[in-house]
Computed example of a mutant assay.
Amino acid sequence: MASYSPGVQQASKAQIKRWRTHLADERAEAAVYRALATKREGEERDILLALAEAEKRHEQHWLTLLGEHASAPRKASFNNRLLGFLAKHFGSVFVLALAQRAESRSSYSTDVDATPAMAADEAIHEEVVRGLATRGRNRLSGTFRAAVFGANDGLVSNLSLVMGMAGAGLAPHLVLLAGIAGLLAGALSMGAGEYVSVRSQRELLDASKPTQITLSAAKALDINANELVLVYRARGMSPEDAEHRAAERMGRFACDCNPSFSLQAEVAGKPESDEHETIGTALGAAVSSFCFFASGAVIPVLPYLLGLSGFTAIAVASVLVGLALLATGAVVGLLSGAPPLSRGIRQLLIGFGAALVTYLLGLLFGTTTG
């Protein structure tokens, strides 16, 4: 690392400019974590405040290098300023996902004026934020999956339907009627389908969850013909682990031998958290799917509702749906920590590909029956 004493003139203008940018970004990132901490409590709050302190150490590094030049700091990058605004006003998993992505883009590993420890800090910060975002992603993923699926299905299926009808040469009022029918039928079908699907999945998983019968039955079992060992082996334990757990359950010893053989104890009457929260609730998935399908499906028919027809209506519908597909893809990318642009383009290509096929089929159908 190149080192400079405060105020020494051998630092170039380009270096000073870069150091000021780093300084502003570190201050902005620390402010983001402090803002997020105000919306959390307990361990999560402590972790976020610790991250803010770490950014403060990095800030001090750039202050030391800048010396007298630190009096005129630059503005933080637009991304960090936007992240700060979102953290102050929302503080949701979306902000944590954005913070995770911001940490992953750190340039310290290639900046000769940043220490190796600072580069390592940024890499670890990404993992810390990823961990903080995980539970929020788990809670969101079930309903979010239904929402994204519903919105994209509404956009693509109704655009395909409208373009197919328009390509076949139907009158604008018939295209509009078909679009509205497709919206209602699709939204109801998606909502009902998601409810049944999620409900069935949760029931299937609940049927596989172990009961607490071992707590009451263990005392009466024959110690020499211990079926309790079979219970634990059926749950996936090795024979050694199963023998150890069965002995504990039957009161032959407390956990005073090899603790690595023990798993989390079963406690009668203890309230359990939702082990299937990543699936979401059936009602939540159904409502999300219905609403988002309808909101997506209405976009392709908007031009016809406004009185447009022919190629103009198709072009306007395509542009509106394209923007919506880019937006939904970008949101998925942001939440998953992936590049939002590439995810948006992927959604766009898939949606337009399906719509183009149905439009060509409509043209072919209209030509052959005309």
Rank of each mutant, 00 (worst) to 15 (best):
M1A: 05
Y4N: 00
Q15R: 06
I16D: 08
I16Q: 10
W19P: 09
L23F: 15
E29K: 13
E29Y: 10
A30H: 09
V32H: 06
I47F: 01
E53S: 08
E53V: 03
A54Q: 14
K56S: 15
H61D: 07
L66T: 07
G67Q: 03
G67S: 02
E68M: 10
A70E: 12
A72S: 13
K75C: 06
N79Q: 14
N80I: 07
N80Q: 13
K88G: 15
K88H: 13
G91A: 04
L96F: 02
A102D: 13
Y108E: 13
S109H: 11
S109P: 02
D111E: 13
D113L: 04
A117K: 08
A117P: 00
A119D: 08
A119F: 08
A119T: 08
H125N: 10
E126P: 10
V129Y: 02
A133I: 03
L140C: 01
G142S: 00
G142W: 00
T143G: 12
A146L: 00
A147M: 02
S157I: 00
L159F: 04
A168F: 08
L170T: 14
P172G: 07
A178G: 15
A178I: 13
G179V: 11
G186I: 01
G186D: 02
M190H: 00
E194Q: 11
R199F: 01
E203I: 01
D206Y: 02
D206E: 07
K209I: 11
A220Y: 11
N224I: 05
A225F: 10
L228S: 09
M237G: 06
R245V: 12
A246C: 02
A254M: 08
C257K: 11
P271Y: 02
T278G: 06
I279Y: 08
G280N: 02
A285V: 03
V287T: 09
F290T: 10
F290Q: 06
C291W: 09
T312A: 15
A317H: 10
V319G: 11
L323T: 11
V331N: 08
L334I: 14
A338M: 03
P339N: 05
S342A: 09
I345W: 07
L349E: 06
V357Q: 05
L361H: 01
T368H: 12
T369N: 11
